[in-house]
Nucleic acid binder design. Structure first.
Lengths: 152, 152
DNA sequence: TTATAAGAGTATAGCTACTAAACACATAGG
DNA sequence: CCTATGTGTTTAGTAGCTATACTCTTATAA
């Protein structure tokens, strides 16, 4: 039907994905003197969100990466003074990952940033008719299926 | 208003971005015996799309990366037997990047794959009312502005 | 009880993809 | 002719990951 319009959606979508990726991989400071990469702040986010004591293996399961990767990232956040590891009293082969005060500063600064972002997102949707929101959810779901299929 | 719905959109959007990224960084074979990464096939795509003779510097400008990066990537595609460099007869400090038959196979296989993808995309939109397409374009444009603002 | 298997964490090498800086040439302009 | 600019390569460094090999601890089973 209207090829130009469809092409516009395609192009805009590509642009949005590119922007989202760039946003994801731009290191930011989050209230401390250290610049944190996305995987570092992601680590901090998960440690802070979980009240239970998490081990390296726990983190690797939550993050969906190998424990080697978690070990490497924890070394960096530890060097930056954000996290530390203490020995599990019940199991000395296990380490429990904790946050320092500096780590908590970064955690809450990140949370606040997210709330601002989410707030902007929310405000945008408040003026939308419910059927449009339904349509958007449906569109994104179809897009998801489409991309999954493209991935074989 | 409806926080759960907005949260769903947010989550689905994150998932779609993650999938698009994974699709972008999964090496595929494109009709030859070699597996090509996204930057390799991207290089092939640009060489094939341009009838004019492109140099390393030209490619770096089109791709928006340093010429060092292009040089590195060309070495890999050359090792895989997809590209070759010939000396510019007008300027022996300049190299012209050409594709081999194998490179052209990959180029057309990739083009065909893209056409299939675009076709799927198109088909999805054919059943949509024009006002919904307008709404989608508007939504993506707003999302783009929002993300740009978030990037400072 | 002791041997072995399973689990936890680390270290290292390798990969993709990029930048920045230092090179080696070639060419153009004064 | 000599310097400045342009072209391409190489190397070191960064981020983020995997896979593999390794140590140490705990659990299990004969």
């Amino acid at each position: 039907m209207n090829d130009t319009r469809i092409h516009m959606i395609h192009e805009r979508f590509r642009s949005v994905v590119a922007l989202a990726v760039r946003l994801e991989q731009t290191p930011r400071s989050f209230g401390t003197d250290e610049n944190l990469t996305s995987s570092e702040i992601h680590l901090i986010e998960i440690i802070g969100d979980n009240a239970e004591a998490l081990s390296v293996t726990d983190l690797s399961k939550v993050l969906g990466v190998t424990k080697g990767a978690v070990s490497q990232n924890l070394k960096r956040t530890e060097n930056k003074g954000l996290t530390l590891k203490i020995e599990d009293p019940q199991n000395s082969s296990r380490a429990i990952v904790k946050m320092t005060a500096k780590g908590k500063t970064a955690y809450f600064a990140h949370k606040h940033w997210h709330e601002t972002m989410d707030g902007g997102f929310k405000e945008f949707f408040l003026n939308l008719k419910p059927e449009r929101i339904d349509f958007l959810i449906d569109f994104l779901a179809k897009l998801e299926t489409f991309l999954k299929k493209a991935l074989m």
